[in-house]
Write a protein that binds this DNA or RNA. Structure first.
Ligand SMILES: [Mn+2]
Ligand SMILES: [Mn+2]
Ligand SMILES: [Mn+2]
Ligand SMILES: [Mn+2]
Lengths: 220, 220
DNA sequence: AAAATAATTTAGCTATATCTAAATAAATAT
DNA sequence: ATATTTATTTAGATATAGCTAAATTATTTT
């Protein structure tokens, strides 16, 4: 049984929302995530329920099923592999890849993805530091915490960003923050939670709490 | 004004049919080419007419407009560039690329195609020997004739295939015919038009007239 | 326990892209 | 010139994916 492009996009959104802790995902949550109206979501949930990729009880939100999770992870795998391709092979900037990958992820061809994976040398992370599920849907995730939750004097390495919007990524480019950078927290302002960070042992950087919360760090 | 995936596919079909000589393309021609019913075609022609990529007079077939030709050539460009990518970079066989390219050609991103073109080193022909239009829609086509129309003792080089079906391409693989092969006509059987061909000065090959008519040769 | 509010679903509509069957126009044959 | 055949269009369905407005259910407050 196949999913349409729209169904794949909804399922991916439901998967991401499910991963954010909550046991059950609401119609409104999905509508917000998908930039559609709740009425459209209700309709789609019914369809996805019939296809048994989610478990849907009217008025009580949805749970993703094992099969649904498997499908969502396949789409995520494709999305992230294409992002790696765009950055590594076609010299896209990391803030230019998302929309295109959002289309490419729906191309149906297992052979294509298998070959693309090999061509890219079986990458484990995408340009935003997100892990690429393997063909069985297994994800090797690294322990990582938001930069703003680190204590003064602690060190680590930037491994991912939470917000992959072009605006945020371009801001990071501008201030010289990147995946792989070594960082150390020099100071935290109690008043507003803003941070002073040392990047690569040479550059000092000030950032708001909001920015810090969208940078994910592997502590060392 | 944008075209949907279905509209792009129809327009491409109309373009190809137009190139086959005939001044005007009929509803039935399009239906056959697209594997749809004439009723569906009528509806689509009305829409394409409204978008002014074709000129449509009920009951009298269609003509592609200049704008339509430009659009069709862009889609063809994308299709053929992706085919080159699949063969050159992902090691697809030339009989495995068509369906995937048929999907990839609809990805909307001028930057993607510009970068892909550069990554592939600005190829001029696809894996089936068909010319790749440039970004302005200009096509550099080579003079080429069907192998079965050559005379005995004439020589040349295989530069393209007319039929790109997997079945035909696999047959060519099996008998050792490929784009770029040097060939010479050793004999033509008058009875059924079948041919005896010398490939690369070493291998002799017998083929039906039908096969010969689907192999395109640059004479030398 | 009502009333008010918030969340969600249903009904009805639009648009795309298909189909089959019926109607009609064009082309061909008698 | 009429009849027959062929090509094409129209009418009426179905399926997907979205919307707004109205109705309904669930939750929260009083
Ligand atoms: Mn998508
Ligand atoms: Mn990403
Ligand atoms: Mn296509
Ligand atoms: Mn081709």
């Amino acid at each position: 049984m196949n999913l349409t492009t729209a169904e794949e996009n909804y399922l991916k959104a439901i998967y991401h929302l499910s991963e954010e802790g909550k046991k059950s995902v609401s119609t409104n949550d999905v509508a917000a995530e998908m930039n559609t109206k709740p009425a459209s979501v209700s309709d789609m949930l019914r369809k996805l329920g019939e296809k048994e990729v989610i478990q849907y009880r009217k008025y009580y939100g949805v749970h993703i099923t094992e099969e649904g999770k498997r499908r969502a992870l396949q789409t995520i795998r494709k999305h992230r592999l294409w992002e790696v391709f765009l950055v590594e092979k076609l010299n896209f900037a990391w803030d230019e890849v998302h929309e295109v990958a959002e289309e490419l992820e729906h191309i149906q061809s297992p052979l294509l993805i298998q070959r693309l994976d090999a061509f890219l040398n079986f990458p484990k992370f995408d340009p935003h530091g997100d892990p690429i599920p393997d063909e069985y849907g297994d994800v090797r995730s690294r322990p990582r915490i938001p930069l703003n939750e680190m204590e003064v004097d602690q060190s680590g390495q930037i491994v991912a960003v939470k917000d992959s919007s072009a605006a945020f990524l371009r801001y990071l480019d501008k201030v010289g923050a990147y995946i792989g950078a070594r960082i150390k927290v020099l100071d935290k302002v109690e008043f507003d939670g803003s941070l002073e960070i040392l990047v690569d042992q040479k550059k000092t950087l000030f950032m708001s709490k909001d920015v810090g919360s969208n940078i994910l760090v592997l502590q060392s």
